Simulated scan of single mutants.
Amino acid sequence: MKLKRYAAPAVIALTAALALSACASNEGGAPAAEGADSGSALTGTLTGIGASSQGSAQEAWIAAFQTANDGVTINYDPQGSGAGREAFISGAAAFAGSDSALSDEELEGEFGSCAPDTKAIDVPVYISPIAVVFKVAGVDELNLDATTLANIFSGTITTWNDPAIAALNPEATLPTTAITAVHRSDDSGTTKNFTDYLGKVAPDAWAEEASDTFPFQSGEGAQGTSGVIQAVTGGDGTIGYADASKAGDLGVAKIKVGEEFVEYTAEGAAAVVEGSPLVEGREANDIAIKLDRETTDPTHYPLVLVSYAIACQEYADAAQGELVKAYLGYMASDEGQQEAATSAGAAPLSADLSTKVAAAIETIK
């Protein structure tokens, strides 16, 4: 299968420009028929660094995009969101993957790959629940509310038979085993989303600001999503948080939303994003989302992350800009979103958000 350079129909609708519609039609918004030659003229190498949550999706996106554009090589290193943003800011990466959008402070700085006097933008490309994974002998199901979860990860609750956990799980036989709460040791957008959730939903138990860096010395630190999963899998009495695509065979806790305990689902994560406003004060093509953590609707799953592709509005190297625009366009396309759903269990962008994202990507130079 061959892909031409992507230009979404949503962009056409948003701009309402017939000239753009004709141009996009010529460039090709959908993949060519199987076995057909797309005539892709894209060539070059593209380097991305960032969120490990995007790892599985990036593998699928890269494989499909390189198959469709055989003159292109894309490298993505899942070092973590913080490392990705640092690499992008320094110019070591042409784009970053990050589970948190650029901060106002970061946006005020300079970006190594961007044209002089231009800024970077955030575009959502990956939506996923964060799973609270655990491994406790004799416990197959676990209910947790935000306050209890906060007290576990801050080190206030230290054993699995603590009365607060027992009250939420009256039918479970909870052992006296000590709790090992595993957190990310690296700067992580997943940590920022996790701590944002705790701070918003359980402010009396979690007074710390949302941060890429885990704020307590308690528990055990592990590098990357894979490190957290390995640490939880290798222990007993362990609990951690990770992108749901990596939960595997571990136990996954239900979290309390309103008056019910709910399992994570892609649909529940997508519903939260759909109902959340954009961050105010950003450029029109910078689509950062202020997630509604405090929903009480049990069809929603508020422990969710939105992972962004961070790119230049305009690249100093026009050829890199062309590659970034094409690749991000594929990631956000219907086909790209289906790849992420299939390979990583991600929730596809809603029609409205897809329109906004496609329009933002179209502005990249």
Rank of each mutant, 00 (worst) to 15 (best):
52 S>K: 01
286 D>A: 06
233 T>A: 14
254 K>Y: 08
224 G>N: 10
290 K>N: 12
218 S>D: 11
168 L>Y: 05
194 F>Y: 11
241 Y>M: 12
269 A>F: 10
325 K>E: 14
123 V>T: 08
196 D>G: 09
11 V>E: 05
235 G>V: 05
44 G>W: 14
230 Q>D: 09
200 K>T: 12
222 A>T: 11
185 S>C: 14
106 E>R: 10
132 V>C: 02
305 L>N: 07
184 R>M: 15
350 S>H: 01
100 S>W: 01
99 D>C: 06
185 S>I: 14
308 Y>R: 03
49 I>P: 00
240 G>H: 13
154 S>H: 04
18 L>E: 12
365 K>G: 13
41 A>H: 04
208 E>F: 07
159 T>F: 11
186 D>F: 02
172 A>S: 12
346 A>R: 11
323 L>K: 01
170 P>L: 04
155 G>A: 01
166 A>M: 10
360 A>F: 08
245 S>G: 05
143 N>D: 15
150 A>L: 12
103 S>T: 15
199 G>S: 15
251 G>K: 02
252 V>E: 13
362 E>H: 09
56 S>T: 13
80 G>W: 08
275 G>N: 11
46 L>C: 09
235 G>N: 12
9 P>K: 10
345 G>L: 03
243 D>N: 09
10 A>F: 00
199 G>N: 13
97 G>M: 07
342 T>M: 05
298 P>G: 03
51 A>G: 07
335 E>C: 07
327 Y>A: 06
295 T>E: 07
74 I>E: 01
271 A>T: 06
20 L>H: 01
